[in-house]
Amino acid sequence: MNKILEIKNATFSYDGNKNIWQDINIDVSDGDNICILGANGCGKTTLFNCITRNANLTSGTILLNGKNINEYTITELARKIGIVYQDHTVTFPYKSLEVVKMGRTPYLKVFETPGKNDEDIAYGIMKDLGIENLADTSYSKISGGQRQLVLIARTLCQSPEIILFDEPTSHLDFKNQAIVMKTIRQLAEKGITTIMTSHYPSHAYKTSNRVILMGNKKIIADGSPKDVMTEKFLQETYGVKIKINKTDEEQCFIDIDFRDI
């Protein structure tokens, strides 16, 4: 398998004193579908910020297709890495299709606006995701789950090699979680490399073939869900007693036990 993203000896610190995480190494191969789990504040989102160059590593390097990400232009990077953010505030109620079209921006010249071709691409992607009926609906008037799908469609418009999902199911109810998870899994099945962060450990089984547990400024475990999702590792990650009750490969009940706290 081709390594497309390599995070090497990476350390990050906001103030230069306290490291958020230090000396971590992650190799992402083509077709990996990774779920990163970790407690609040362990630096999952910070790691994404470093990969998308919204933050700079304190030390270490991130290579994309063997080349340092800092050697790419912002526009080149946007054609390779797409990211779906969790907290999205809507100031202007653009139509959903307009939002999706914004994903074509890395392919437009500075003075260009998207044309018919870009609109066809955007609409085609919305159709693939089954949300073409939302095209003319204002983005502020759709549900949180649909909004995530619109953002996923926008990211697909960038035709990236890797898609990052920053807590794609937070703030969503069960039905919307299910819709978003199913979409992410469909992308994974198509062979798109995905990395997502989550606060729901059980989601790791449903979308991912690889789980990374982050905590204590390092990577606690990295491997297949079967090997990594153990009570011992999860307890170390979250610092709380955890019970796992697995019914089959995908269905798994993970619960916290706070009677001893």
Binding site: T52, T75, Y85, M102, P106
Partner: peptide, 23 residues
């Protein structure tokens, strides 16, 4: 007027605009 599309993308916020390839 010629950069109006970039203003659209910029209105999503700096972080998202950057991830869409905008300086």
């Amino acid at each position: 007027i010629v950069i109006r599309w970039r203003i659209n993308v910029l209105s999503l916020g700096d972080r998202e605009a950057k991830s869409l390839g905008i300086h």
